[in-house]
Write a protein that binds this DNA or RNA. Structure first.
Length: 492
RNA sequence: GGUCUCGUGGCCGAGCGGCUAGGCACCGGUCUGCAAAACCGUCUACUCCGGUUCGAAUCCGGACGAGACCUCCA
């Protein structure tokens, strides 16, 4: 059984899959870059968070005691390479004529609501950048003390050249310091920096900034990358197991985090770096200008023009789980509809688990192989699509058992039910509640009566009445289906 | 321009050197008063050109194509 817990993880740092060995037996420290709350997270953001939720859930499933830290960026990102002040949060706040704290709070409430809708487990801690200004200042002081940063006119920059004499800048993204100059498109940003690749740790305040803090270098605000270094260190220590985020954060954000950690504490913060891939919509990266941009809530409510109909959050999550976290995923009406259909099939099979015939004979070998396959798939770098294929195999076997073409013992059935539920609900995080309609008792009672009358009509071969009831109900939005065990209905 | 991914059947997507996932659609069948649904079965792909190998979708080289990052971005 122990081999069932032999997890391998792909490490972006090495470009290889390796057996996972936690730094401290039985415990995992994981840090994931969370949302920047100057707007509502879009569907692409959600995919990353959902993927790390899956990873968190599987680590828990394997019995690890996981400390999962996902930060909230609520301090403005300060500079771009051109050296212009870009205080995203302040900008959005002024636009909407409110205080920055107010806008961050507003979007945080929305973000937490999305977490519930999409069934994400709450992380162990969700620390905010603004709540850790002091820690950030202390890290910056340490980096200066170690000789890897310098202060200029109230700002502090990381000294990439000094750093690269002792450490390797670019180990994560495969960049070479000497080559960085050639690949930078904009070379106008020299201004205060000694070297074009240097990046801000602390930026002097502009008069129009909405968020300003005091520091040893004067009033200002922290650089974009330093908050993660400060918070990961505070909650997980100088070195921990897993650091994750979206692919687009690999450079410069994560590269600079490594530099800051090495520059202050002498080591790479994480043993394993994991990067989740992007979500495409209709073959292209989600973008407002392409018209394929939508919010996680809009697709659930059917209020986006990108798709013709609404999709349940479980269906969206299921669709996402059918692609590996390291692959790009394309959302189209076809892929979503396919996921919806498949999800229903799996749902049917799972519900049959509760009243499946068992035998005293041996369980069919194909059925016995099911549970180990679930673990093997997930142990292979969290291969959820493969797990789902295994679950469909299980569905097929469940139908076969029902038809008497395969067999399962009582004990094995109990075990299969337990593990299928666990992988579906706990690991994939997919809810399988009964479809809507069941909540309205009056409607249920009325439908029971109508279907009973129709049943009588059918027994009398009164097809006219029978079909009239079905057609009128269809018009009213209620679909009636005649099965072997009588008629069933769903609201559509 | 630089760095790096990737190119799988009608569509979405696993695969990491031999045993050729899975879902959806299509088609065929079972069931059914009809319809729908459901279940069963079928369909055998790997951008192109070289190379390595007994054997390649899978490794190497090249071409073409797509995308990401280099600038706020999950």
């Amino acid at each position: 059984m122990e081999s069932l817990k032999d997890l391998s993880i792909y490490n972006s740092l090495t470009g290889e899959k390796a057996r996972f060995e936690p730094l401290h037996a039985g415990k995992v420290g994981m840090y994931v870059c969370g949302p920047t709350l100057y707007s509502e997270p879009h569907m692409g953001n959600m995919r990353t968070f959902i993927n790390f939720d899956l990873i968190y859930r599987y680590l828990l499933k394997l019995g690890y005691n996981v400390k999962y830290v996902r930060n909230i960026t609520d301090a403005g990102h300060i500079t771009n390479s051109a050296g212009e002040a870009v205080d995203s949060i302040g900008k959005a706040a002024r636009l909407e004529q409110v205080q920055s704290l107010e806008i961050v709070y507003k979007y945080n409430v929305k973000f937490q609501e999305l977490n519930r809708i999409y069934n994400l487990l709450p992380p162990s801690i969700e620390p905010t950048a603004t709540g850790h200004i002091q820690e950030q200042i202390e890290i910056i002081e340490q980096i200066i003390k170690n000789g890897f940063a310098y202060a200029v006119n109230g700002s502090v920059y990381f000294d990439v050249r000094a750093y690269s004499e002792k450490f390797e800048y670019g180990i994560l993204s495969g960049r070479k310091v000497d080559e960085l100059a050639e690949e930078t498109r904009d070379l106008n940003a020299q201004d205060e920096k000694r070297f074009f690749a240097d990046f801000a740790l602390w930026k002097k305040a502009n008069p129009e900034d909405m968020q300003i803090w005091r520091s040893p270098w004067g009033d200002g605000n922290p650089g974009w990358h330093i908050e993660c270094t400060a918070m990961s260190t505070k909650y997980l220590g100088s070195e921990f197991d897993i650091h994750g985020g979206g692919m687009d954060l690999k450079f410069p954000h994560h590269e600079d985090e490594i530099a800051q950690n090495c520059g202050s504490l002498g080591c790479n913060p994480a043993r394993i770096w994991m990067h989740a891939n992007m979500l495409n919509v209709n073959g292209q990266k989600m973008s407002k200008s392409l018209g394929n941009y939508f919010l996680p809530k809009e697709i659930v409510e059917g209020t986006t023009d990108v798709f013709e109909k609404a999709y349940a959050p479980e269906v969206i999550r299921f669709c996402m789980m059918q692609a590996h976290y390291r692959s790009t995923l394309d959302f189209t009406s076809d892929s979503l509809n396919a996921a919806e259909k498949g999800f229903t099939r799996l749902q049917d099979a799972v519900s049959k688990l509760d009243h499946l015939p068992t035998t005293n004979e041996n369980t069919t070998p194909e059925v016995s192989a099911l549970i180990p396959s679930f673990y093997q798939s997930m142990n292979d770098d969290f291969n959820a699509p493969k797990l789902i294929a295994n679950l469909f195999e299980a569905a097929k076997m469940i139908f076969a058992i029902e038809d008497g073409k395969a067999f399962i013992s009582k004990n094995d059935l109990d075990e299969l039910r337990k593990e299928m539920h666990s992988f579906l609900f706990d690991v994939l995080g997919i809810r399988m509640e009964k479809a809507a309609g069941a909540s309205d008792e009056a409607l249920n009672a009325a439908m029971d009566l109508v279907l009973e009358m129709r049943k009588t009509a059918r027994e009398n071969k009164d097809w006219g009445t029978s079909d009239k009831i079905r057609d009128r109900l269809t018009e009213a939005g209620i679909i009636v289906k005649d099965g072997k065990d009588g008629a069933s209905w769903t609201v559509k």
